[in-house]
Nucleic acid binder design. Structure first.
Length: 88
DNA sequence: TAGTTGACCGGAA
DNA sequence: ATTCCGGCCAACT
């Protein structure tokens, strides 16, 4: 039984290139559909290069936040990976 | 232990 | 369509 944040990191790292997942989706896959907010709390602190946190977006389709150069860098990365981004 | 914070979500006004 | 409010969860102080 690993910690919730361990599972979250695994789930996020499992996101295929060119594919995005919502925080709620990641939370649900980690085992807590309602822990979408906690995902942000975890990611914000535990950012490591093996975790493509930039592929995690909000349910609205907006990129959300990013601690690695701001939302702009995140959007740029997604665009680079040809991820299906939604126009806010 | 308890209280505050925050990369969120969904519903109501 | 946009803005406001409450709720839910994990981490930090």
């Amino acid at each position: 039984m690993k910690s919730f944040r361990e599972r979250v990191l695994v789930v996020v790292s499992s996101i295929p290139k060119g594919h995005t997942a919502t925080y709620a989706q990641v939370a649900a896959k980690a085992g807590n559909p309602k822990a979408a907010r906690a995902i942000g709390t975890i990611m914000r602190k535990n950012f490591n290069p093996l975790i493509p946190c930039h592929r995690v977006v909000r349910s609205d389709g907006t990129v959300g936040e990013y601690n690695r150069g701001g939302p702009g860098a995140k959007t740029k990365l997604l665009h680079t990976e040809s991820a299906t981004l939604r126009h806010s």
